[in-house]
Design a binder for these strands. Structure first.
Length: 582
RNA sequence: GUGCCCGUAGCUCAGACGGAUAGAGCACCCGCCUUCUAAGCGGGAUGUCACAGGUUCGAAUCCUGUCGGGCACGCCA
């Protein structure tokens, strides 16, 4: 149960009651009322803007409303103190019991602490990675992969029915190029001296085994055969092999999709015609000509009649071609068909896209809006570039030789957990530096270390607590009230208050589609834990472990266990294994 | 030329749906520290939230414009 939601509900009840008694008007719009932790801890545990929001519709002074509501709030047993402050904020301080009991709730819920029904089983489709199947994953794909995966985790936790989907672009020209590259490797495997891989083809070594396998399977049947004889076959073999590579790379990061959707399959199933029919019935297709794009030297621009979609009616800057002059479908048309298909089996769509696709956001949103009569929620969080550094110096990549920094190399060097965490230390749409040296540093300014260290430190303390009192392990599963009541120091209450925000953080991250909030929250909790821990240096009575005070040691072990649970739950959402010791 | 994103402390960045005196880490200054896990801890100073208008009880947040930066932009995939 989200504590903030609980009091939000109570406040709405109060407004209704005051309405029934004639002290406030009926049927007020209460949708803008919030209950939040106040920024300033000294203001109390919860703050609500209810009085300010209702001032205008009721025609009353905010502070007058605040006093009415405050009087009612004081009647709630768990409320210790209510103060009206500033322009009309109501600050609520809860009874220490309420916070103490949160520890029991956290420990009883375990990994499910933070789960909610916010999403109400809405079928939400998260499409992410979708790298072209032409080679292994490189670092350019990494951030979107992590952001998408963690967002999917968050949404699942928040009660959505999540499908994790990968769109395989196996139908375009680049897979033809791939097949030709594989054909050269195939001839090479048959003993032919092929020299350098031709300009424009994929030179990567990872295609060598694909050629070898084809040579083994088919002998020299296709060595001198015309392309038409082998293209389809080689394409299939190459794409399958590349997908296997990609899946292996994703597995290194702990990423597993539910569904791989093939562009070719969408076409083969006739979904493009379905899409066209759907657009046609809405009168959104016509044959016309496009103006030349501005800002380019456009001597070569030819106005040709094309089949166009009226994207401009749905917020795009211009209408967009569905067919090329050649009569072939455009990539865009296939993409719409795919999205139409996704929409038919979802209640909401999310695409995680790299920043290089910003230019196409409007048109795909226009298409989805058109095909679903604007009924389909569709978010496209954009993921910015990652700059790879080593000790502050940019890592050089030689494109010429086809050497990218691969995801596998990076995971091998620093570990999957570190990669995943660092990818979430910035908002997705701002650029991110990834410094191989810094991410492994053991210091305060490395958030991965800082959070893991907090977890390991707690584990260590819990082991020692067990030595002081062998019953600790049992007590922390269902802590008795008299044990919890010993946790009444302000510093302890502050820590409880902080971890009790976890369910709210999950919901916020889900609604805002912002996984980085989890990482930031964990850093804050780790900071609070370390800070609290250090208090014990100056004041030994604040240490967690007190050999001469078994009841208090046990109680504090309960607090530690709850913090550990919350950090562990956060890391689990991020797909990171928490460390027991380090 | 057009579109999207961005502009917050010296640096790197947080700051859903408008809320109180705008925060964190680093760097800087001053102390402390050999410990319940050590890779440090405590305190201090630091802002025209790019600029100018507007909306309102209230704006870093919303709207308009200007300036500055990044990315993208043909029937490629």
């Amino acid at each position: 149960m989200n504590l903030f939601n609980h009091y939000h509900t109570l406040i709405l009840d109060i407004i209704r009651r005051l309405g029934a008694r004639g002290e406030l008007p009926h049927d007020l719009n209460t949708s803008h009322i919030t209950v939040e932790p106040p920024r300033e801890a000294s203001h109390g545990d919860l703050a609500t803007n209810v009085a300010m929001v209702l001032a205008k519709p009721t025609g009353k002074a905010p502070r007058a409303i605040a006093e009415l509501v405050a009087a009612e709030l004081r009647l709630i047993p768990s409320v210790a103190e209510v103060a009206v402050a500033g322009p009309g904020f109501i600050n609520i301080t809860l009874d220490a019991n309420t916070w103490q009991q949160q520890l029991g709730i956290i420990l009883a819920a375990g990994i499910d602490y933070g789960r909610s029904s916010l999403g109400d089983n809405t079928r939400i489709n998260v499409e992410y990675v979708s790298a072209n199947p032409t080679g292994p994953m490189h670092m350019g794909h990494c951030r979107g992969a992590v952001v998408g995966d963690v967002l999917a985790n968050i949404l699942a936790k928040a009660g959505y029915a999540v499908t994790r989907e990968y769109y395989v672009n196996d139908a375009g020209g680049q897979v033809d190029v791939l097949a030709r590259s594989v054909h050269m490797r195939y001839r090479e495997a048959l003993g032919e001296a092929i020299g350098d891989i031709s300009e424009g083809l994929y030179p990567g070594e990872y295609l060598v085994p694909v050629g070898q396998a084809l040579a083994k399977q088919h002998g020299d049947v296709y060595a001198a055969a015309p392309e038409a004889d082998w293209l389809r076959l080689f394409k299939r073999a190459a794409v399958d092999a590349m997908l296997a590579l990609i899946k292996a790379d994703l597995a290194l990061l702990g990423i597993h999709h539910d569904l791989f959707s093939s562009e070719q399959a969408v076409q083969d199933a006739g979904r493009v015609n379905d899409m066209l029919a759907a657009l046609n019935t809405r009168g959104l297709v016509y044959t016309g000509v496009l103006d030349a794009p501005r800002g380019h030297a456009d001597d070569t621009w030819e106005q040709r009649p094309l089949l166009l979609f009226r994207a401009s009616q749905f917020g795009d800057d211009s209408d967009r071609p569905l067919k090329k002059a050649s009569g072939d479908w455009t990539y865009f048309a296939n993409d719409i068909a795919y999205h139409y298909d996704k929409a038919s089996r979802s209640d909401a769509l999310i695409n995680i896209w790299g920043a290089d696709h910003v230019g196409t956001v409007k048109r795909i949103k226009a298409a989805v809006a058109a095909l679903t009569d604007k009924a389909m929620p569709f978010d496209i969080p954009m993921v910015q570039m990652v700059h790879l550094l080593r000790n502050g110096e940019p890592v050089k990549m030689s494109k010429r030789s086809g050497n990218f920094i691969t995801l596998a190399e990076v995971v091998e060097e620093v570990g999957a957990g570190v990669v995943r965490f660092i990818m979430l230390t910035r908002k997705a749409d701002s650029q991110l530096d990834f410094d191989f040296a810094k991410v492994l540093e053991q210091s305060r300014d490395n958030p991965v270390f800082y959070v893991q260290y907090a977890h390991a430190r707690i584990c260590s303390a819990l082991r020692k607590a067990q030595d002081i009192d062998p019953n600790v392990a049992v007590t922390i599963t269902v802590p008795p009230l008299e044990t919890l009541a010993l946790l009444n120091r302000p510093e302890e209450i502050a820590l409880m208050r902080q971890i009790a925000e976890w369910p709210r953080v999950v919901e916020t991250a889900a609604v805002a589609r912002e996984p980085h909030r989890i990482a930031f929250f964990l850093s804050a909790v780790a900071g609070a834990l370390h800070g609290h821990w250090n208090l014990g240096n100056d004041d030994p009575s604040l240490r967690f472990l007190l050999a001469d005070n078994v009841p208090l040691t046990t109680a504090r072990a309960v607090l530690l266990a709850a913090v550990k649970q919350v950090i562990g739950n956060g890391l689990a959402l991020m797909g990171i294994e928490p460390l027991e010791e380090m």
